[in-house]
Design a protein around this nucleic acid. Structure first.
Lengths: 149, 149
DNA sequence: CAAAACAGTGGGTTCGCACCCACTATAGGG
DNA sequence: CCCTATAGTGGGTGCGAACCCACTGTTTTG
């Protein structure tokens, strides 16, 4: 009855292994859903940051998303081309471009969030709502602890 | 007091986002520790599978680790070169190579497990032992639910 | 015993991610 | 003003993951 794809017990015992594996699965599913529209995870993240925290310059947004400023510029190209953000030259410092979410961007973000939630519901299906809340809380603390670098 | 690297709240609300991000952090740390010895995560996984579940043919091991058989062949090259596995031609079916852990391989695996546990202790530092156990249990169930594909 | 199937392997490709540099336009300090 | 620093950008690089094909040797099947 040995499942030929069973994970070796000594790996299953490592919480970090499970975290890495389930996290990768989750990431892959999110990425696939976005890829259908030619988007990457950081496009979603960029829209979310602009919606939650207001306009950013490109450098600010790059720092927040831990992206290279050069890579963020390319991402912003796409978001602007789709009409989801405005890129306006800061009159006070004409080197800076201020990125602002448009109404269309807000709408698209709502759609992306809905897709992400639907995927999440499927992914977390083995857990009941209380367990999901516990998991979320624990991950939040790990996230806060690990993020500082 | 707005932290310029704070994660946007609407992403922090997504459990799958947190899972993906913390999982990636955990994976990166494990990978870096292995890289110091020229190893990848799948080398550790291969040794663990052979230790826990006994000898495998290359195809069996590739299926278990969800690796391409061609890639597993390259990984097995390295493990054999370091003396951690034996590759013996199966006399009953001379197409097959049976991979078996050597004593040296078992020793190396013990070292890798110890390193992984040490990293894990650091990574899970924000959680107390009871919380770690809860997290582990929840992830195990997600892992079991997600693995079937 | 010929044909089809299969194990392993060498040599690729593609893709996403993370960098990095050179260059421009602009700002700001002495 | 000149000099240095900074914002954005175009065009790269290197790496690892994942995949894929062609080929050899071996087994199985009709």
């Amino acid at each position: 009855m040995a499942d030929p794809t069973e994970t070796p017990p000594s790996l299953r015992e490592l919480t970090t292994y499970l975290l890495s594996r389930t996290g990768k699965d989750a990431r892959t599913r999110l990425a696939e859903s976005l890829a259908a529209d030619g988007l990457r995870l950081y496009h979603h993240a960029a829209l979310a940051a602009l919606a939650d925290l207001g306009p950013h310059t490109q450098r600010e947004l790059a720092a927040r998303l831990r992206l290279d400023p050069s890579d963020l510029a390319k991402a912003a190209d796409l978001l602007a081309a789709r009409g989801w953000i405005d890129r306006t030259r800061d009159p006070a410092d004409r080197r800076r471009l201020t990125l602002t979410l448009t109404a269309a961007g807000r709408t698209r973000l709502a759609g992306l969030q809905a897709e992400a939630r639907a995927l999440q519901d499927a992914f977390l299906a083995p857990l009941d709502p209380a367990e999901r809340a516990v998991l979320h809380g624990l991950l939040l603390r790990l996230h806060a602890g690990a993020a500082p670098q």
